[in-house]
Design a protein around this nucleic acid. Structure first.
Length: 484
RNA sequence: GGUCCUAUAGACUAAUGGUUAGGUCACCAGCCUUUCACGCUGGCAGUAGGGGUUCGAAUCCCCUUAGGAUCACCA
């Protein structure tokens, strides 16, 4: 059997991190087995439709390196791939179930349903559509039903769940799952607006699109029995199911907006590398080996298998994501880093002097930051004169005689011809040793005066990147305006 | 509340009945060093609890506890 899997989001806004992980696992599985990856848009709820959401979804899936073989944006033999464009299909299949006696009409209003719910709740029973007490095929005769339909009375079509029969199915990740049959509700298949519910559309489409494996989030596990029953009602074979563990907040609840960013686009905007993000997400709930953390997309594809996916939810720990991003920041080619950050700097109108200069600054600081986009905030002094100065560091390293020492130093370097790492370094050592002092007596004062900060890259690497004239100006400014 | 799922350190995980329970993040210490980092070395810390099965259990079974998901004419 050939592998055909799908990612089937609703176009309700942005791509959720959990959605990305689901899409990624589908993608890894498809590519690993040389199968097909399909995108299907589930937009049967017209009230939640968001304009442009589909394009947005595709954009960020592609950002992550997840591409499709079939979908609304590329077509395919099993289209259309947008459920609202398959409208007529679902009614046809719903009617087929009616004819086979597997489903039935129901005419209850939402008020009547609400009443029923209250009644059941009051009696202490569990909720299930009470088919013998409502207005449907069980309580009305054919004449009445025909009349209601002819009169244009709104109706829905419900699945006739066979009571008292346990529903059992196999899940690749969880093993055998069984649910008591008398707990399954007579699920609505076709809504009164003529649109199918998720359950009908999902099953019909997965069947027609010949989906071999349904890989989706654990939140779908409780409704899977309904789907299994639907496949049985149609006389179709079930696809294999694999329910992925949830991505969790710090407090172990399902990853949600309240407790941090959940939209993939937020992480893109913050400057995370796609490789780092995908690597991190892939290892939340699955692990190929015991002693390695960094994997490329190709390696993930090669190693991926559903059997090793964990059963329990995984907390999304931003700490580890940051670490992983830093790993990529250190190992990526410098040109790639430039390509990554320049559009961002231009967008925030940050003056990075020029490309070559920016390149040198990145080389110098890539091991000191975790995210490239942090560069402007981490080392503003590389691009402009410092505006604030670390008071504690000044107190610690600026002694009484330091002002005179630095003044002398300024005069001395004014005469220097060359100004690069080697020359500034060698000159300074020689100069300070002649005075019978240690390098540290001048290094710290220079650092605070030139950068305003207590930490940073090697002082002479830093000074070499800044022009000598600039260094002199900064030192003079510091002595005249800050230290006084 | 019903149903279902889950349970290895603070977090991500490895160990498919036999290991001293391994790795990573975070945290702490030391080394390196002109500062801050990187890096290196070391450290802290775990099988939720209780019963079985077995020569032997993190692993299989049962109970308890805890957490989560879900219960719409939403997906």
């Amino acid at each position: 059997m050939s592998v055909r899997v799908r990612f089937a989001p609703s176009p309700t806004g942005y791509l959720h991190v959990g959605g990305l992980r689901t899409a990624l696992y589908n993608f890894l599985f498809a590519r690993h087995y040389d199968g097909k990856m399909i995108l299907r848009i589930e937009d049967t709820d017209r009230t939640r439709f968001v304009e442009g959401a589909t394009e947005n979804l595709i954009k960020y899936l592609e950002w992550a390196g997840i591409n499709f073989d079939e979908g609304p944006h590329i077509g395919g033999d099993y289209g259309p791939y947008i459920q609202s464009e398959r409208f007529d299909l679902y009614r046809k299949y719903a009617m087929q179930l009616i004819e086979n006696g597997k489903a039935y009409y129901a005419f209850d209003t939402s008020e009547e349903l609400e009443e029923m719910r209250k009644r059941i709740q009051a009696s202490g029973g569990f909720y299930r559509y009470d088919r013998m007490a409502m207005r449907n095929q069980f309580t009305l005769d054919q004449q009445e039903i025909k009349q209601l339909i002819d009169n244009g009375t709104p109706y829905v079509i419900r699945l006739k769940v066979p009571y008292d029969q346990d529903v059992v199915f196999e899940d690749i990740i969880r093993g055998t799952v069984s649910v008591k049959g008398n707990e399954v509700d007579d699920q609505i298949l076709l809504k009164s607006d003529g649109f199918p519910t998720y359950h009908l559309a999902n099953v019909v489409d997965d069947h027609l699109m010949q989906i071999s494996h349904v890989i989706r989030g654990e939140e779908w596990l409780p409704s899977t029995p309904k789907h299994v029953l639907l496949y049985q009602a149609f006389g179709w074979e079930c696809p294999a199911f694999a329910h992925l563990p949830l991505l969790l907040n710090k407090d172990k609840s399902k990853l949600s907006k309240r407790q941090g960013d959940v939209a993939v686009e937020d992480y893109v905007a913050k400057g995370y590398f796609k490789e780092a993000f995908v690597n991190f997400i892939a290892l939340l709930g699955w692990n190929p080996t015991a002693d390695r953390e960094i994997y490329s997309l190709d390696e993930l594809i090669q190693l991926f298998n559903l059997e090793k996916v964990n059963k329990s939810g995984a907390v999304f720990d931003i700490n580890k994501l940051n670490w992983m991003n830093a790993q990529y920041l250190r190992s990526k080619p410098i040109d790639e880093l430039l390509e990554h950050i320049i559009p961002h700097l231009e967008q925030i109108k940050f003056n990075y002097i020029n490309k070559d200069y920016l390149k040198s600054v990145i080389e110098l600081f890539r091991e000191r930051i975790e995210n490239l986009y942090d560069l402007p905030e981490a080392v503003p002094y590389m691009f402009d004169k410092p505006k604030s100065f670390d008071e504690d560091f000044i107190k610690k390293h600026w002694k009484e005689h330091t002002t005179d020492l630095v003044k002398e130093y300024i005069e001395a370097i004014k005469k220097l011809q060359d100004w690069n790492y080697q020359s500034s370094h060698d000159f300074t050592i020689q100069w300070i040793e002649q005075k019978g002092m240690k390098l540290r007596d001048i290094v710290h004062p220079l650092r605070i005066a030139v950068t305003g900060k207590s930490g940073g890259a090697g002082l002479f690497e830093t000074l070499a990147l800044l022009h000598k004239q600039d260094v002199i100006e900064r030192l003079e400014y510091f002595i005249e305006n800050v230290i006084n």
